[in-house]
Structure formats: C-alpha cells, structure tokens
Design a binder for these strands. Structure first.
Lengths: 207, 207
DNA sequence: TAAGTAGGTAAATAATATTTACTGATTGCT
DNA sequence: AGCAATCAGTAAATATTATTTACCTACTTA
C-alpha cells in the first residue's frame, strides 16, 4: 500500500545494524525532548544522558540538529508503518482520507515528542529539507495527493479545488488543532477531534 | 473595531520614544532574517549590521530571542492596524471571515519575514508565550472566535462545529498554504489562494 | 599476522552568548 | 547655576557551548 520501493529503501538502511552508542544518543535526545525544547539542550547534556562522550555524537552525527532529524526519522517510520496497517481494506478516497485524519491525530495525541519535533522544531532549519526524515514526509504527501486525485477522478471530491489546497487544508487543520497539545501539553480527544475535523472539511462551515 | 483597550495599550507603549540604538537593533534583525534563519544569526553579526556594540543589545533586550519577539511585535501591530481597516464596513460573519482570510494571506504573501517568524521561528520557545507579541496574537484570536460565534448565533455558520475548531481550520489552512512561501520563497497568488481556501472551508471538499 | 576499520574516549580549541565595569551626554531639580 | 540621576552607549572580560583533534582498543579479514 504505502510501501513504494523508495520508502522501504530508506527504512531498511538504518534498521540493519546501528552501534549501541548511536542508539543511545538518539534515545537520549528523545528522552530529553519529552520536557525540554530542542534549543535548550546542550551536547554535553545529551552525551551525559546517553552515557557516552561528546565526541561520539560527532562520530555519528553532523551536529546537534542531525540527531534531531534521526529521532524524527525513527518516529516517522513507525508512523508510516501504522498508517499502512490502518488503511488496509478501506475503499473510497473520502474513507481513506477520513482514516488518515484519524490516524494522524491519534499520532500527535499519543506521541507528543513526535508532534513537537515536526510541528515546532525542524521546519526552521535548511538542513531538515535535506534530511531523510523529510524524504519520508514528502513521500507521505505524495500518497495523500494521489488519494485526493483519485477522489476527484471518481466524483467523490469536488473538481474545482486543486488537490494541493485540499491537502493543505487537511494537514493545516490537523496540525493547528494539535498545536496546543504539542506546546502546552493540553490533551486531545482523538475520536472527537477526528470527527469534527472530518465533518468540517468534508461539508464546510456554512449552514 | 479591533481596538480593544488592551491592544492599544501595548501598541502605544513602544511607539512613544525608543532610542536610536534599539531601533537599529530591531531593524538589523529584520534585515538579516530576510535570507537567514534565526538560529544561524550571531549576536556579533546583529551588532555589526545594526552598527552598535554587542553590549547594547543586552541593554535593551534580554537575549537574542527577545529581539526576535520585538520584531514580530512590530510586524503584528502593523498587521492588526491593516486588518482593522480592511474590516471596516463589512457585515456578516462569513463576509468578515472571508476578508480576514484574504488579509492574512496577503500579509504572508507580501511580508515573508513576518510569515517566517510566526510560522517557523517563535513557537518553539517558551519565552514567546510570555511575550507581548503573543499577547497580540491571542487578542486577534479572540476577535476571530467572536466573529465565528456571531455567525453561529445568527445562523450563517453551522452550530454543530465548535468555534475553536473552525478557527483552527481557517488558520491551519492558511498557514499550511503559505508554508512553502515562508520556507522556499515560493510565490503565492493572494487572490487565487483566498478564493480557493474560502470556497473550500465554507462549502467543504465533498461533492 | 598485519593492516584496516569500527566503536569509543579525553582533552583542546573555536565559536558564541552574556556580564561587567566603565564613559560622556542630557535632564530634572533646589 | 550646580549637581545628582539617568540614559545611551562602549570595550573588554568571562562563561557557555559546539566542534575538532589525536589517540586507544578490539575485532575482522586477506
């Protein structure tokens, strides 16, 4: 379903080996991000938390941000695996979009670090757009666009709205609705949010 | 219209005097952000660009981020003044929302630094949510919610969608649609984007 | 068995942010 | 008029943090 060759290539390349030190560093970053801002973390803290020396971080990663991108990549891989499962057996573009909305909200709601990284921490650096994590994001985006186009083609979705705008509306709405979760740790009710957002985007706000 | 007492208080407090050095620092930050990322700027660069010494920056601002927040505040003040004008003489909640959508897109489209700061640079720090800039954002948000509630009350807007979600959909969609403008400097056609987004949000994507 | 390489360390260095102690000019006050 | 305060600003020291360097050990493999 989602598993275009490209995707699995990236996803397998890492899983193979990875020395313990590298994993410890990624885990340390993830742990620290639980209640701290990326900017506020120091290399020394990360090293201490991981139980390695600072130098080792530079052996495996270009810089502090590079570690962040690897954490995001791991999260995004899990996310895509889950989405792939969630989508199985679902027919119709609108039904697929509905499920994707639910799954995305569920992800942000239950994986706050993931939400914070992608909504708040990476998009402000140029390196991100060169990273493998971003390659996964683009891949996912292409799949969404395909679903939207399918919906337009078969008459489920209005044909006078460019698919890129529809995608922006879907993800913009989801992300904005989860922003307070990411920033202030407010809770999000997945089912309610998914229901309201789907209803809103499918039928509009006008009476 | 927008000019609740609170707003004007903040907006006037700054305008009064402000020593030349302080203004030069804010302008330097704005200039540098034109083609550089906030993180990549150094205090020394900012000082050189402003034509002042590094020490002076700390005389007027708590730290580097504090300068950023002041730049945003200035931009946001202008934005609110413009929105206030744009809204004059417009009746009906949907008409007002439509105009706000247009004005917001126009702002992001023609003020890329503003878009970058608010979409990419500030939301990842705790200090931001303590800043005067954020106070303006909250104020604006409250006004939007009021308009939405007005629309629900008078039957223009469906009553089964919580107003907070409607606001999130509006701003989420706008922001996502301007993200590539902010990040990659892609151009945005204000009129087209406003038309599509309004149509999409008002009537939904379903055929 | 020796050459390379992978995983790792400790300490030096470089880059940046922030603080401190200090001017000279202006302003309000009796 | 004279004189504290305060304001705008500087220069240099210091603190913090990121990054580089040189090295060590164990393990493969040819």
């Amino acid at each position: 379903m989602l598993s275009k060759k490209y995707l699995t290539d990236i996803m397998e390349s890492q899983t193979v080996s990875s020395p313990p030190g590298k994993l410890k560093i990624i885990n340390a970053m993830r742990t620290l991000l639980d209640d701290r801002t990326f900017e506020s973390l120091t290399i020394s803290e990360i090293a201490v938390t991981a139980g390695v020396t600072e130098g080792l971080i530079y052996k495996y990663f270009r810089d502090k941000r590079d570690v962040l991108h690897h954490v995001l990549r791991e999260h995004y891989e899990q996310f895509l695996v889950q989405i792939d499962r969630d989508l199985q057996g679902i027919d119709g573009a609108l039904n697929k979009l509905k499920k994707i909305i639910w799954s995305s909200i569920e992800r942000y709601a239950n994986h706050r670090v993931f939400a914070r990284i992608i909504l708040l921490e990476v998009r402000n650096s140029e390196e991100y757009f060169q990273s493998e994590a971003y390659a996964l994001v683009r891949q996912f985006n292409r799949i969404i666009i395909d679903i939207i186009n399918e919906g337009i083609a078969n008459g489920e979705i209005r044909e006078n709205l460019p698919s890129a705008y529809i995608r922006n509306a879907i993800f913009g709405t989801i992300e904005h609705s989860c922003l307070n979760r990411a920033i202030f740790n407010e809770s999000v009710s997945t089912n309610e949010a998914a229901k309201v957002i789907t209803e809103l985007l499918f039928n509009g706000i006008k009476r």
